[in-house]
């Protein structure tokens, strides 16, 4: 009996391992597949890919992660690249790949219309398909408050504020780099705000949830389409663009230099500029690059008075040192005690 039992155990284990090897060996992928690495929002890119596959005879293998994770994966695959196309949530990431000479030029690609040519890379190494502004998400109670960045970082304001940690959130990182490059006194201002109670939750969603349940009154450096999505779900929060201007963060698409599927890659890139694809992005509250596509009602309701495109080349050069300094001098600076208590129960 014992022997039978152990025989059963061993043989089922062997079967399991055999099955495993089968899985390992059998799933040889077609090397005519188009491989796309993309940042979220996931439903959007999945929909775009499904539409493309329905129209063209190309199979796509899609991998969705955050921009940081995509960069790590690309770096690990550097010596045997897998991806043909990358889509990031930050143009600086694309610039980083371009600087290493890993992107192919898309300058000659035919796009339907070029209403925002300045959104693209100057030499066409990465193209913007859509974009988003970085501003402030405010609790509904602060609807009437329309602060400038100066007021937001003013250490005497009476609000509980948070900013997603710039070393964890790509958008907040892009915002901080841009803000610091534009203004020499930015560091001391944000430091004062930190000492007065500004918090740095680890991720965008963590910060936003804090806003929804009422822990925070405002989230600084919030990317607008996430806020619009929460509004559409019925949450009473407000997207506010400070009057002293907000950066426009484009969402670039690029083809990798080694790509063996250039034809289908270019087809796919063109596909993202069709009215249908642009509408899919607009419906997810992103700012489409085509102006003949309707904005989502939430986005249509607010427009920034001043906005600009950050300089990606400058951004990439200074990003490392700025984020480092931010991490050490600001994120790790203690909140001065006594500043927390009076800010509670503003409701």
């Amino acid at each position: 009996m014992k022997a039978l039992k152990s025989f059963l155990i061993i043989s089922s284990a062997a079967l399991g391992i055999g099955y495993l090897l089968l899985v390992l060996f059998s799933k040889q992928s077609e090397n005519t597949d188009l491989v796309i690495y993309s940042a979220g929002p996931r439903p959007v890119i999945e929909r775009l890919v499904a539409d493309f596959e329905a129209q063209h005879n190309v199979r796509i293998r899609l991998f969705v992660a955050t921009t940081g994770q995509l960069m790590a994966k690309l770096e690990a695959e550097r010596f045997r690249p897998q991806a043909d196309i990358v889509i990031f949530a930050s143009p600086v990431a694309a610039e980083a790949l371009h600087r290493q000479g890993r992107l192919a030029s898309l300058a000659d690609i035919e796009l339907p219309n070029q209403e925002q040519p300045e959104w693209h890379h100057d030499d066409g190494y990465y193209l913007a398909t859509s974009a988003a502004y970085v501003g402030v998400a405010l609790n509904d109670r602060q609807r009437e408050w329309s602060p400038s960045w100066l007021e937001l970082f003013n250490s005497t304001n009476q609000y509980r504020l948070a900013m997603p940690s710039p070393s964890r959130s790509g958008t907040a990182g892009d915002f901080v780099v841009d803000y610091v490059l534009r203004d020499d006194s930015a560091f001391s201002r944000i430091l004062a705000a930190r000492q007065a109670g500004l918090e740095f939750p680890a991720a965008n969603s963590q910060a936003l949830t804090g806003l929804l349940i009422g822990t925070y009154d405002g989230i600084l450096a919030a990317v607008d389409y996430l806020v619009f999505a929460q509004q559409a779900r019925g949450n009473n929060i407000v997207m506010h663009y400070p009057s002293d201007g907000v950066p426009l963060i484009t969402r670039p698409i690029a083809m990798l230099q080694h790509s063996t599927q250039r034809e289908s890659a270019r087809l796919f890139i063109q596909h993202l500029f069709t009215v249908e694809s642009q509408s899919v992005m607009a419906d997810a509250h992103l700012l489409p690059i085509r102006s003949d596509v309707a904005l989502s009602p939430q986005r249509a309701a607010v427009t920034p008075t001043t906005a600009w495109l950050p300089d990606n080349v400058e951004g990439l050069t200074h990003q490392g040192p700025i984020l480092r300094r931010f991490q050490y001098e600001i994120e790790r600076a203690p909140i001065r005690s006594g500043n927390q208590a009076p800010k509670e129960n503003l409701r």
Partner: peptide, 18 residues
């Protein structure tokens, strides 16, 4: 990734659940 996606690995293990 470095190890199983290296050029000398003949099988495409890397792109499977394995």
């Amino acid at each position: 990734i470095l190890a199983w996606n290296a050029i000398w690995v003949p099988l495409d293990i890397y792109n499977t659940v394995g």
